[in-house]
Simulated scan of single mutants.
Amino acid sequence: MTPVSASDVERDLAEEAARSRLRLRFDKVALRVVGALRSRLAAIVPEGEAVLVAIAAPIRRPTETAASIEALAPRASAGPVGETVHGNDVRLRWIKGARANMPRVIAFVHNPGPDGERLLDLAEARVTGAERPDQRSASDPS
């Protein structure tokens, strides 16, 4: 099975986020931090797993923010992480059981607000092949 690139998955999820009225950022700083995270974290995420990252903008210290998130990522393997990093709300979620063709790192920068968890929910559903949370049947209690 051909691997799917992180940018392809992120682009698809960005379109889905826009339909869900989640506000993503694609400015130069956001793209630079996302690129740095992809390259830094890919080496520590094993095959069949993925790390998902949501960062609230604006990012005023991109290099330091990316390095701090890299240091936080291993903690996410034990459970979701939510921290303030250099003034940015950061959410990380480590997924065990990612589909084989999915990228190991998916990262988003979003406008301030509660969008981080919702973005991670959408990304997790995509990476694991699970049903999206907003598409579950009314009889499903979860």
Rank of each mutant, 00 (worst) to 15 (best):
G97F: 13
R91F: 06
V45M: 13
A50Y: 05
L13I: 05
A18W: 00
A78K: 15
V127N: 13
L22D: 01
A50M: 08
I59M: 02
D121V: 03
L13N: 05
E47I: 10
H86E: 09
R136N: 07
A43H: 10
D115L: 04
S5A: 12
V45L: 13
R99T: 09
L22Q: 00
G82N: 12
H86L: 04
H86C: 03
L119M: 13
D8S: 14
A17L: 08
D27M: 00
G82C: 09
P58I: 02
R61W: 00
R99H: 12
L92Y: 06
L120R: 04
R61L: 10
A42H: 11
A18L: 12
V33K: 05
R75C: 11
A123H: 03
A50D: 11
V105P: 06
N88R: 05
A67I: 04
S68H: 02
V33H: 02
A138H: 11
F26G: 13
E49L: 07
L24T: 14
A100H: 06
A71C: 05
E64Y: 06
V53T: 07
N111S: 11
E124V: 12
V4Y: 00
D121E: 15
S39V: 15
P112E: 04
R19C: 06
Q135Y: 04
R99E: 11
P114R: 06
D115H: 12
D140H: 15
A138M: 13
V4L: 14
L22W: 00
N111A: 13
A78D: 14
E16P: 01
G79D: 10
H86G: 01
R11E: 14
V127S: 10
L41Y: 05
V109K: 00
V105T: 07
V85N: 01
D140Y: 14
A66F: 02
S137Q: 08
A130N: 14
V109G: 06
H110L: 08
S68Q: 09
A42P: 08
D27S: 01
L92G: 07
T63M: 06
P3A: 03
A130Q: 13
A18S: 13
P103F: 02
L37G: 09
A54M: 05
V127Y: 03
E117R: 08
V53Y: 02
D8M: 14
V4E: 10
A73D: 08
K28C: 01
L52F: 13
P141K: 08
G129D: 09
V29L: 00
E131A: 10
A107S: 14
D134C: 04
I44V: 14
P112L: 00
V9Q: 12
P141N: 09
T84G: 01
R126K: 11
G129S: 10
A54R: 07
L92P: 08
R25W: 03
S39K: 15
N88Y: 00
E117H: 06
R11N: 11
D121I: 03
R99L: 14
A36K: 10
R126P: 07
R19A: 14
S68K: 08
R126Y: 09
D12C: 05
R23I: 01
P46Q: 12
P74F: 11
K96N: 15
G82D: 11
A42N: 14
L72H: 06
A78N: 15
D12F: 07
S20P: 02
A57F: 03
I95P: 10
F26I: 01
A6L: 09
A17T: 03
